[in-house]
């Protein structure tokens, strides 16, 4: 029943927070199962492309939140998702801030393969799969202008209107290109089984 509630997004945060603060270890596991995938998605979104630090940050975020819940430090249990979100965003910001202090920020945004090697074969395989999948998807797009849409939007981080103006395309066409590209990436995700949690 609880699993069903999590799948439909109606997690009872108040009860969960209360159980964790009361020392219920099973509730901590439920918390991790409910939030781990979401935290990872957010951390990836706020981190630089392909940064291998993501998994470490996710673990830190989950650990930090559980620690705070054990200490009963959350005044509004219903605000748990907001607290988790803020912790995740702050953790990413703090990581890049630390790198900035060490002079490691420059030049990394566009060079994910130059980042520290996590020395995990599975991660290498995943990256290779991702790169090959995107190359196939780019080839399938056929039209160079459509590939340029993706480059500008995802890599140069230009907004929709700027991309449309630069390439003289309508917003509808822009959305079609992105929709097709995302659909192909989702197929890859499903093949990898990551979306099985649905």
């Amino acid at each position: 029943m609880e699993a069903q509630a999590e799948r439909s997004g109606t997690l009872d945060c108040v009860a969960l927070v209360g159980r964790i603060s009361a020392g219920d270890g099973a509730a901590e596991t439920e918390f991790v199962l409910a939030f781990q995938a979401g935290v990872r998605a957010l951390v990836r979104r706020h981190a630089r492309p392909g940064d291998p630090i993501v998994d470490d940050i996710v673990q830190d975020v989950l650990h930090t939140v559980i620690q705070r819940l054990r200490e009963n430090a959350l005044n509004e249990p219903a605000a748990l998702p907001g607290y988790v979100r803020s912790t995740a965003v702050f953790a990413v910001t703090a990581e890049y801030r630390r790198r900035g202090r060490r002079g490691e920020n420059d030049g990394h945004a566009e060079s994910p393969e130059a980042l520290p090697d996590p020395e995990q074969p599975a991660d290498h395989a995943r990256r290779a799969q991702l790169r090959d999948g995107v190359q196939r998807m780019l080839a399938e797009l056929g039209v160079e202008r459509d590939r340029e849409v993706l480059r500008r939007y995802y890599l140069n981080e230009e907004d929709r209107d700027a991309v449309c103006a630069a390439l003289s395309i309508e917003p509808d066409h822009f959305h079609r290109v992105l929709h097709r590209a995302r659909a192909r990436m989702k197929e890859l995700l499903l093949r990898r089984g990551i979306a099985d949690m649905q």
Partner: peptide, 9 residues
């Protein structure tokens, strides 16, 4: 994934 894959390419 799309963003990461494009960056890898």
């Amino acid at each position: 994934d799309l963003r990461d894959g494009l960056a890898l390419v």
